[in-house]
């Protein structure tokens, strides 16, 4: 076992304590794949844990999950076993390096073109029983607008949209936000600009997207869509190196530029959507 911090809630006994229905579910999603969702989820979780929050990362990318790779974990029991009734939820929750908990999807999970009622119900049940036990549940969802992704996002109280400054990534992020506004009546989406090459460009990108949304996406006049800039993460060679070393960046090199940016994201979240830890 790694020398990890096991949050108090991981304690078997605490499961019997009265449940606190205040947890925040944040969906980390993107329009295009490969923009850094998993990297952000894992490291933001570590940054929040470091600030004293009880955090769980849920691998909701039922298909391409690679959280296990980023965290260098090789679980015997995964979400797949919980979905198929082979294991209890409690047994699939693992302590991750970085002091948070994680629920990995496992390789048995595949994308179903249609979201089956079983997947739906299991998902609901799982989220329902996680929320009271953690201060923050971060969902690392798949990219795009498949049924499973949209459903996972619909369960979240906040959407953190990860995009890079590249045109393809922005187009897909914009298209996804349109769907979230149209189908889920979302009014707020928080944008994280990852792999940014120029400080400050994230705010400009957010303003730009907001302008296009205002102009092309019709919403109820009283409830306009609001795109909020949560923060930028610079391109940083340390990100790749950490993955190559199979280490969590936030745990080993928290002072690199990307690490500092993520720590800043955690502080911003604390100021806006999640209450300070007790």
């Amino acid at each position: 076992m790694n020398d990890v911090l096991i949050p108090a809630a991981e304690n078997k006994n605490s499961l019997r304590l009265p449940l606190k229905p205040l947890g925040k579910v944040l969906a980390v999603t993107s329009g295009k794949g490969g923009v850094g969702k998993t990297f952000v989820s894992a490291n933001l979780a570590a940054a929040l844990a470091r600030r004293g929050h009880r955090v769980l990362v849920l691998d909701a990318d039922l298909g391409l999950a690679n959280l296990d790779v980023v965290l260098n974990l090789h679980p015997k029991i995964t979400l797949h076993d919980v979905f198929t009734g082979k294991a209890r939820l409690e047994d699939a929750i693992l302590p991750a390096p970085g002091g948070f908990s994680v629920l990995l999807a496992g390789s048995g999970m595949v994308e179903y073109s249609r979201l089956t009622t079983e997947v739906r119900d299991e998902f609901l049940r799982i989220i329902g029983s996680l929320v009271p036990r953690y201060d923050v549940v971060l969902m690392d969802t798949g990219a795009g607008i498949s049924d499973v992704v949209l459903f996972a996002v619909s369960l979240a109280s906040e959407v953190l949209m990860v995009a890079t400054p590249e045109p393809t990534s922005l187009t897909d992020a914009y298209a996804t936000i349109k769907v979230l506004v149209g189908q889920q009546l979302r009014q707020t989406v928080r944008l994280i600009v990852n792999q940014s090459t120029r400080p400050g460009s994230g705010q400009a990108i957010t303003n730009q997207l907001q302008q296009v949304l205002d102009r092309f996406v019709a919403t109820d006049p009283g409830h306009p869509i609001q795109l909020l800039h949560l923060g930028d993460i610079p391109v940083d060679p340390e990100v790749r190196q950490a993955i190559m070393r199979r280490q969590l960046m936030m745990q080993h090199t928290p002072d690199c530029p990307a690490g500092k940016a993520i720590a800043q994201l955690a502080r911003t979240l604390e100021k806006t959507v999640i209450p300070k830890p007790a």
Binding site: G31, G144, I145, P165, P167, L170, T171, D172, Y174, A175, T176, K178, V179, R198, S201, A204, I205, N207, Q208, L209, Q211, V212, R215, F216
Partner: peptide, 18 residues
């Protein structure tokens, strides 16, 4: 994921600024 040419045109203003 449908995004019209006009929307795209507006989306990439920041790149010029960049």
């Amino acid at each position: 994921l449908s995004v019209s040419a006009e929307e795209k045109g507006l989306l990439f203003g920041h790149l010029l600024m960049d």
